[in-house]
Write a protein that binds this DNA or RNA. Structure first.
Lengths: 211, 211
DNA sequence: TACAAAAGTGCAATGAGTCAACTAATGTAC
DNA sequence: GTACATTAGTTGACTCATTGCACTTTTGTA
């Protein structure tokens, strides 16, 4: 999730990491062009569906050339998502700078609840979620946004225990935690879903209660 | 894992599911063409690297047209992997028809050990693994081969307990189990790695011993 | 032998993404 | 303010994967 398009106001990667408000006309114009492209893209995607929109269509709608689109976004999928520069850093910090006495697992639980739940439960998220869900390409991309940081998180967890950077248990934990959003997505009660899965990781899998 | 090219003799999807040996000249010729394409592809990929080989190159090497390549394989990545029709069925059966008294988790552990370990430890696997590891596109594809069956496995697990087909704990277990090969890949002792991760799933995550 | 199915071919097209050479606006140093 | 270096954006040509279509050839079958 984490779209390019002010749905949620928090975490607009580029916008917020920009030396806030007007660091030169050039930067501003560049940001404006970028935003125009992203907006045109989302509008068209929502109207016609991801596959029914070509880069050409988007470029025309934003009144730029197709090559300009690729100067701002590395690929078609990236038109939909915000590339958050700092996600990895925040993830690592959540483990490394956890409160004294707090377990790594608890720190990660808190971090997931605090950073992911707001998006999942944001009301305007609905149509955006529908778009992503109905496009395998976008679903895969959204997942990679998280799983990309598996190695970094695994290393952070290993460091927290003085284990090898490539310790298997730490790698497994990192991966499993980063997939929790994908697993909890779309559940009636996302917060409870996150807790349930963390409980599995903390205490082991138990057979579910039969209704 | 699971290549198109007799590295491991077991589980050659198409080959083994063919009404063994000569079900008509037609079938045999088709299979031969298919094999010629797959072999040419692997040879070229290993020689030059995945990205340095075009479909055109492969078609030329196998002396067919590029369109014929796509008649046999749905895409470039599929030239490297065997599409095993029955993987999902075997996975579901491992849970549904487990030995009496055996837990679902143990049944899955057995299944993973029996079906995946042979590949991982097969000697000729080495250069093949190097090719896959060094090509993000192929790594992602290899992973999808397993995770594709997440839904089916989740449903099978849920059925085993009379839970809802979309029970969250079952979905999580399915997903986590199917990712074990990806996590255990390349470890010195793959068998021990699989056991370690199953232990995490069974009893919960514990901080690793500090060396 | 005649006919239908299916394997393979050739060709043209679409759409993503890259590259190189160019223009024009902007920032910076003087 | 003028001169120079950057850099956003443009254009157009290119590669490559993938699809569709119309056509030929081979093979299984009635």
């Amino acid at each position: 999730m984490y779209s390019n398009h002010n749905l949620p106001g928090f975490i607009m990667g580029y916008a917020s990491s920009m030396t806030v408000s007007s660091a030169g006309r050039r930067e501003r114009k560049k940001a404006a062009t970028r935003q125009a492209i992203a907006d045109a893209a989302l509008r068209l995607f929502l109207e016609r569906g991801y596959d029914q929109v070509s880069i050409r269509d988007i470029a025309d709608a934003a009144d730029v050339s197709t090559t300009t689109v690729f100067k701002h976004f590395p690929g078609k999928e990236a038109l939909v998502f915000d590339e958050d520069q700092d996600r990895e850093a925040r993830l690592v910090a959540a483990v490394a700078q956890r409160l004294p006495g707090q377990s790594v697992l608890d720190a990660l639980r808190r971090h997931v609840l605090d950073t992911w739940i707001p998006f999942e439960t944001h009301p305007q998220q609905a149509e955006f979620a529908r778009l992503v869900d109905s496009t395998p390409e976008l679903r895969a991309y959204a997942e990679r946004m998280w799983t990309r940081h598996t190695e970094a998180l695994a290393a952070a967890v290993a460091d927290a225990f003085g284990a090898d950077r490539d310790d298997l248990a730490c790698a497994a934990l990192a991966r499993y935690v980063l997939e929790i959003p994908a697993l909890a997505r779309g559940r009636r009660d996302p917060r409870a879903a996150v807790e349930t899965i963390f409980d599995i990781l903390a205490h082991g899998w138990r057979q579910p209660a039969t209704p």
